[in-house]
Design a protein around this nucleic acid. Sequence first.
DNA 1: GCATCTGGTTTGATTGTCAAATTACAATTT
DNA 2: AAATTGTAATTTGACAATCAAACCAGATGC
Lengths: 148, 148
Amino acid sequence: MTSQEAEKRINGKLEAVYKDILWLEEAELKKSRFKDLSIKEMHTIDAIGLHAEPSSATVARRLHVTAGTLTVAVKNLVRKGYVERRHEQGDGRVVNLALTRKGRLMYRAHAAYHQKMVASFVTGFNDHEVGLIESALDNLLSFLATQR
Amino acid sequence: MTSQEAEKRINGKLEAVYKDILWLEEAELKKSRFKDLSIKEMHTIDAIGLHAEPSSATVARRLHVTAGTLTVAVKNLVRKGYVERRHEQGDGRVVNLALTRKGRLMYRAHAAYHQKMVASFVTGFNDHEVGLIESALDNLLSFLATQR
DNA sequence: GCATCTGGTTTGATTGTCAAATTACAATTT
DNA sequence: AAATTGTAATTTGACAATCAAACCAGATGC
């Protein structure tokens, strides 16, 4: 079958995309006003998010890292002025994380970059076709979920 | 327009895919007979490839890392028995890299995993639809190329 | 043959990571 | 209410990955 061929091509393209995105995001970062952040730090900011003030444990789970790893990362982000620690009312053990003004600026810049990227992804497709692309992503997500 | 909505959903899904794949590949690795490899080492093996015996500089470029970083990585992979260094005939400076038998086994195992992943990605689509998905990836690759 | 260029290695510093030990607070048991 | 157990986070010690800069060794050019 010829679809085998297509799968191979798609695999190659996915890999190319995969390899480049992280690297490009890092390069983009170094050119921006947020030079002092690594790509991992940016993703930590992303995982904290704008609104919910998640606990340290929640963010660690989102990032698939241990609590200890996150503690260190947050310490650096606090020092650099992107993140604030807040002690939870009523349970003195819990530390909630929130972005500072600077952190929120960073978050939005990153989100804008992603938006541009996705816009390019679906350029030239009609609604129905965009729906197909979305379904393909859903397939992949289901597959990944079964693996977890 | 409603396509803005779709773009947002796609963005979220891309991010989810993105975060999970690396982590899952690492988990898959640790369950396999190649437990002694990290995900980065696996990608180094992938970048060396089965056939061409690329130079150290070529592999470093493919991985977007410096020559120094690669030297260290290769030293470990040689120690672990996955990679061989070969001095180029005629130019004593150049070091070409090749996979050992064990390295080739690893390469093929990784390729098989990717194949499963991509198969899930295009499950249930006809040839025309798979073509659309491929075009979307091409869009994204073009966008990434303009950013480079 | 000396100077320069080029591919690779080494080194020192920093970041990211984990597991294990520790601290601090909360909830449960007795 | 004191002791036990449980839970959230931090600290610590070790090790991968990474870079920039210094260095080394083989090529190339004058």
